[in-house]
Design a protein around this nucleic acid. Structure first.
Lengths: 251, 251
DNA sequence: CGACATTTTGAACCTGTTCAAAAACAGTGG
DNA sequence: CCACTGTTTTTGAACAGGTTCAAAATGTCG
């Protein structure tokens, strides 16, 4: 499952209209081992191609959808990183996750037919549009797709359990270590170095995700750097001692 | 949608074997407006009856499933309250939710075919066993059921977003207020008083859910009681001033 | 009734927050 | 290309909310 790194890194910003036809089919996509097509037969994959016909390009900062938007589609991220966030009645907000290539966003909208969070592009990005009704129709015919879709949602639930564990009990240093390790792990699964990270989000966004203030995130980075576990230069983070970082999580 | 309160409160502890045949069909169940059957036609409901043929009784403290258990079924809670919790590598655990009648547990297992959390009965309880493969087969034939099942999972994701918001940013008093209001709301939807709560969990379990220590939970209860917002006698909580409680969440 | 678990309350402590200011950086337009 | 403006990041010092440790009170169950 080695992916073509150059392809993933290619410049995906375009001046094209908001929506345009998909030029690359799921069956040809090099994210197919990570994305919706996982486990489908060649035959089934071709039927999936029929479904995912639209792409959408976003500029940095643009919203893929916002809380209250009518729900119609899921989105598979092709390039770029997103954040999802919820906002409480009194205006405080909480980043609920950072999503990258091959991951699906929009599942929150199925429950009420309205999106329940904002999804914002942290950099120029491109997504495949998966109309939900078409997906369910197809899933009705392809049990494997049905099953995979359920798995996807279940994994999202389990991922959130992990975040709750982090937010509920860990201290700042543990949260930051868990965050970095999680990022490297996911980058690695996409064929990138497991040591070099380029953060696409601000300290404040990291803090919001981790339940910390931005100053605490910054200080924790500095401390980990002082101790020689990482090297930090703005948004470039180099994991110097992954083992020590892991050790923070298993005292 | 008023439910028969006496029925919900009935003593459900039995000396029956672990599993036994369901005597009450989904189509007859007075939780049908809350549970899996929501929105199904009479005809479809009868097919659901075929699927949910087993019941399981649990004693207080017993596990419905544990992390690592092979996943085979979802469970619809008929009576009794449950908690779900995850445990980190170093043994700390986090309560991820409290579930009550009409709610579905076990969705965490779909992703990996193994349960990813523990589900424990906080009191004597009874659940309907919903074999997952049968459910998906039926969902394949009944689009409405398929849709409803997706909604169920999506709502769980959104619920967890709310918990993340709570854990990430709220202070102790807000967390406790949110917890109490959420409980009353759910009790009310089940035909109970929205003012009287009997907590089925310890202060420690509440604390674990809210990301607080048990002492903090206790102190916060005491403070809210001093201020006249609630009355606390051990596990009996009476909401004296619901508006003031809500006001805590919208400063 | 007695043993054990749960809850309450107090006081000292600590981690992360708040407020503030300087430094580094990014984007803009001349 | 550089200067300029606004944003992001770093760091310091005082502060506060929640934790920790401890002990008493209350409740529960055999």
């Amino acid at each position: 499952m080695t992916l073509d790194r150059r392809y993933l890194m290619r410049d995906c910003a375009t001046d094209d209209p908001l929506l345009r036809e998909a030029r690359i089919a799921c069956s040809q996509c090099n994210l197919r081992e990570l994305c919706l097509p996982v486990g489908l037969s060649t035959d089934e994959l071709e039927r999936l191609d029929q479904l995912v016909r639209l792409r959408r390009s976003l500029r940095k900062g643009e919203a893929l959808f916002r809380t209250g938007d009518p729900f119609s589609s899921l989105y598979a991220i092709r390039t770029g990183m997103f954040k999802t966030r919820v906002t409480s009645l009194d205006g405080r907000d909480q980043v609920t996750g950072f999503q990258m290539a091959g991951e699906i966003v929009g599942l929150d909208g199925i429950g009420t037919n309205e999106h329940a969070c904002d999804a914002l592009a942290l950099e120029d990005a491109e997504v495949c549009v998966i109309p939900y009704v078409n997906l369910t129709e197809l899933a009705q015919q392809i049990p494997g797709l049905q099953r995979h879709f359920h798995r996807l949602m279940s994994r999202e639930i389990v991922r959130e359990h992990g975040v709750m564990l982090l937010l509920g009990g860990m201290r700042a240093e543990e949260r930051v270590a868990a965050f970095l390790l999680n990022l490297t792990q996911r980058m690695q699964a996409r064929g990138f170095s497991s040591r070099e990270i380029v953060l696409r989000m601000t300290r404040e966004e990291i803090g919001s995700f981790l339940g910390l203030k931005l100053e605490t995130v910054s200080r924790t980075f500095s401390r980990l750097a002082d101790e020689g576990l990482i090297e930090v230069q703005q948004r470039h983070v180099r994991i110097v001692d992954p083992e020590a970082l892991r050790a923070i999580l298993q005292p």
